[in-house]
Amino acid sequence: MTQTLTQNQFESAPDLSYKPFHARNIRSRALTFLVAFFAFIAVIPLILVLGYILVQGSSKISLALLTQLPPPPGLEEGGIGNAIIGTLVVTAVAALIAVPVGVGGGVFLAEYSRSGWFAQFIRFGTNVLAGVPSIIAGVFIYGTIVTSRILFGSAYSAVAGGMALAVLMLPTVIKTTDEGLKLVPEDLRRAALGVGASRFVTVLRITLPAALTPIATGVVLGIARAAGETAPLIFTALFSQFWSDVLTPDGIFNSIATLSVLIYNFAIEPYEFHNELAWAASFVLVVLILALNLFSRWLAGVAAK
């Protein structure tokens, strides 16, 4: 062994060329090929799903479809107009509840008590709540709001649906606020307090504005996720074949159509036209959600600069 080495040193330069059929190189290439295949499979569903929705959904999009009411079973004329409005309304109700509460909770965690036992407990609770299945949020709101008719005697309603979605949004908003505020340098807080600002003014005028983009990014992602949720809405917002007059109490305290519930209901019906409406609604919903996602990425990109 020693001899060969010495000989090599004297007689020829060491052979450093790549040997493609060396066992370790074959193994390495096989593994690389395998993970490339896995990555391919991970991406394939997106292409297939998006492809089908684009093909099946976009071909059916028309002004009538976007503005008309869904037809009764068997009829072949109508649209998803009320469900589009309904999704916007229910998601807006959810955001109106979850954003103030979530930002307030996040402010408490990041600005008032970073490491106190209560803050630790709330952080733990936030993580647990984030892991609660979405259908459970529906069961919860059904059990508390719908059956008790606590909301002005209404049972199924847009507000109840929005509350169920808010339960799901809340952990996202709290976490992003907490983490966004933690990124604000401590120096900035000291600067504000040093010129005699109270906590309230410091948070409102200095730290929250400084953390606005990361918080907004998280909120937009949370809204996007809520807009696509179905399970919490099935027995809270229910469904409606009609327009909801969403600017009146009557409209938001009654059951309301949403895109996601419409997709669920119509996809499992035996009528072909209803199935087609489900595809069209899928197209609208996916476009809406992907747009929100890309918007939040753009926001994050702005923040990075």
């Binding site: 307030g104 909770g105 309230f200 003014v201």
Partner: peptide, 29 residues
């Protein structure tokens, strides 16, 4: 001063909502 102090309590109340919702879910079910 009142605004400052209330803001603190509002933040605490908002944070408590998480715990309240979580316990209510468990309790209701």
């Amino acid at each position: 001063k009142l605004v400052d102090i209330s803001f603190r309590y509002i933040a605490i109340a908002m944070a408590s909502v998480v715990a309240i919702v979580l316990f209510s879910i468990l309790l209701v079910v």
